[in-house]
């Protein structure tokens, strides 16, 4: 006679296997890498996902092109004109960079770290995890900690890297923080902006007399080699004084609309 297994045996066994696989993933995450199981599981999925992404982009661009053909044509003409005007800029920038390097050397200051950038498509967006997935990885020179930027501002920071893809936490993730500087003619206040797990960031200024106002732009301060100076992080939306510390603080609305962006740049060191 055939004996039947109790119903709970299979789920219990699978949970134990899941727990062991979870430990494997956590260990890899501690090394800021994706684990081998994720790699294997993603092998058949990612080509299909990339194909779907490409198709969806094509359909969306085609539809946008049909309905905005006239304004797109005007934009192309304007961009062509600006491109012609800016033909000389790269030479000038190179000359100025060489000049800055020479002057910093004469003053005995540390040389600035130069960043190269890698263009990446955003493969997926997980809003509740404050995370995006990009289609570049270790083989493109990406490392954990590299900043991710968009033309509209700072997106986040690479947190996990595999050979051909990576995950980046957004600036709104509670684990994210960056040194910022208020960008106004009469103020250059420095503070630390942190994600808080919702749509806003919070800024802690270093003094109680910080000259910061709502609508001020906040850019990366470039206090460390990690983030170059001058990347737009967002705009202050509310400034207050913390009575326990006496320091000023503010809420910051990120400059990037994470729902809308499709591509980004990873700054590699």
């Amino acid at each position: 006679m055939r004996q039947t297994r109790p119903v709970w045996v299979m789920p219990a066994a699978l949970l134990i296997i899941g727990w062991a696989l979870g430990l494997l993933q956590s260990a890899a995450k501690a090394r800021q890498q994706t684990d081998v199981v994720s790699e294997v599981v993603s092998l058949p999925v990612m080509p299909v996902a990339n194909a779907m992404n490409w198709t969806a982009n094509c359909v969306s661009d085609f539809a946008y092109g049909i309905f905005h053909a006239r304004s797109l044509r005007q934009q192309v003409r304007g961009l062509e004109d600006r491109l012609n005007e800016n033909q000389q800029l790269p030479d000038r920038i190179t000359r100025l960079e060489q000049e800055i390097t020479r002057l910093r050397g004469m003053l005995g200051m540390a040389q600035q770290t130069s960043h190269k950038s890698v263009y990446a498509d955003i493969v997926s967006f997980w809003p509740e995890e404050y995370k995006i997935e990009l289609n570049v990885g270790a083989k493109d020179g990406v490392r954990a900690g590299d900043p991710v930027i968009h033309s509209t501002g700072l997106v986040g920071q690479v947190s996990l890297v595999s050979s051909n893809r990576c995950f980046a936490i957004l600036v709104t993730h509670p684990r994210f923080s960056v040194g910022i500087r208020v960008k106004r003619t009469t103020s250059q206040e420095i503070g630390i902006a942190r994600g808080r797990g919702d749509q806003r960031m919070v800024v802690e200024f270093l003094t109680g007399e910080a000259d910061a106002q709502a609508q001020d732009a906040a850019i990366t301060a470039g206090l460390t080699d990690l983030y170059p100076e001058g990347i737009l992080v967002g705009r202050l939306i509310e400034v207050w004084t913390d009575h326990s510390t006496g320091n000023k603080g503010a809420y910051l609305a990120p400059a990037v609309n994470f729902n809308k962006i499709r591509e980004a740049r990873v700054l590699i060191r």
């Binding site: 699978l14 899941g18 979870g22 494997l24 199981v37 994720s38 995890e129 995370k131 997935e133």
Partner: peptide, 20 residues
């Protein structure tokens, strides 16, 4: 759960338990 956690890059045990 295994596929979901590979896609997110996190929370494998939670996703597997939730899936089961």
């Amino acid at each position: 759960g295994l596929l979901q956690s590979a896609a997110i890059g996190d929370k494998r045990f939670a996703e597997i338990a939730a899936g089961i």
